[in-house]
Design a protein around this nucleic acid. Sequence first.
DNA 1: ATCCAATTTGTACAAGTGTACAAGACATGA
DNA 2: TCATGTCTTGTACACTTGTACAAATTGGAT
Lengths: 223, 223
Amino acid sequence: MRTSAKEPLLRNAATLFSRSGYNAVSLRDIAKAAGVNVGSLTYHFGSKANLLREIYARHTLPMNARRLELLGEAKRISNPDERLMAILRAYVVPAFVSSSDGDGGGAEFTRMRAVLSAEGNPDAQAIIADAFDETSRTFIDALGECLGGASVEGLVWRSQFLLGALYYALINPERVTRLSNGAVDGDDREAAVNQLVEASYASFRSLAVPSTAHQNSKETIDR
Amino acid sequence: MRTSAKEPLLRNAATLFSRSGYNAVSLRDIAKAAGVNVGSLTYHFGSKANLLREIYARHTLPMNARRLELLGEAKRISNPDERLMAILRAYVVPAFVSSSDGDGGGAEFTRMRAVLSAEGNPDAQAIIADAFDETSRTFIDALGECLGGASVEGLVWRSQFLLGALYYALINPERVTRLSNGAVDGDDREAAVNQLVEASYASFRSLAVPSTAHQNSKETIDR
DNA sequence: ATCCAATTTGTACAAGTGTACAAGACATGA
DNA sequence: TCATGTCTTGTACACTTGTACAAATTGGAT
């Protein structure tokens, strides 16, 4: 069998979608970027919507698997504050790392999710919900266990804010560079992850009810 | 002079853009929604890009004015923590309120900004940066004054997270409802504002350096 | 009533869209 | 060598896109 152009096509499509959204990218754009003919796309994927579905299929499972794996490690930490931090990291890191084959992560894929979610593309909408809601629920439960007495409302909204912050960090990193007059590099993903984890740590931490003071080895004053 | 269809067109266009993005909405969609002919659009706006520019012109100034007005009030609060809370509220509220004519706010407009920013539309990109960067800088400065010793990096990243959270709360409120199994209403904007302000308050608050403990009337333990 | 400028309509155009499909190119097993 | 199944190409189709512009319509001032 001749080596198929399917995989390069998937990669190129994901890149273009993540950059300009679903509607703005034509099949011919994708074909041109991959150096093949338009017909190849119909041959391999049948339709544009199905191409999108295949991109999701490629990334979703490995990424959620990685998240749950890290979550499992985090759950073994007994100190609630350290556990909270580890859980947040388990959620954020796989979404940010550059997809070095097989880890299923990929900032590019996450960025694509962000863009498609904003576009409100119906195809993407349903796929995303199916693929990520269960993982999100698992994380919210784990977060709740770290935070005695935290309300469902507080937990869910903060998880929403976390995802929004995560998305926007990938969508518009230039804004960070611009607003800091170049002092901060918005494209520095390691820094972004750390900042995001710290910020959401503080935001979740504030949900804990002080009265049920669980043993806490960290500073409780300010940070 | 006959009453022009320009304003209804602007409104309809903003609604459609905020729902599906810039590319997915055709001029004919907009015309149909407003019950007029396509030609009207070329007549009034010349081009699609210019229509977008006029929508921004309509909302940007009033909205930033309202933000700065509220910021001015907030700055008169002497207690740093209460001031911090008020500043965050001054940033968030005008972006969330439904645009009841003249206040310039508008969740719909903010949602549109969110969607366009994700789409990476070059037209929108430039307009947004010009219109909002200055206001953002002013807010970041004000926040920094409440938080002794906070690093620029921390401030800018958190402002990025705040904006991302704000955007995503408007883009995908159904997720909140879904993940809470209906217990929390993602479309309840007052609740969203409160949750967002509280969450970002905690996240910014954690930036303050404990040593330079400014006088603080609030609980410093947890929340 | 008549004119006029502002607005709206209808229609046309070139360019680009997703999809379909016949024809060719290719490597592999017989 | 040749037949076969897999892939690639080129091209065609019907449709939508943004834009342009002449013709019709409108409502107020004269």
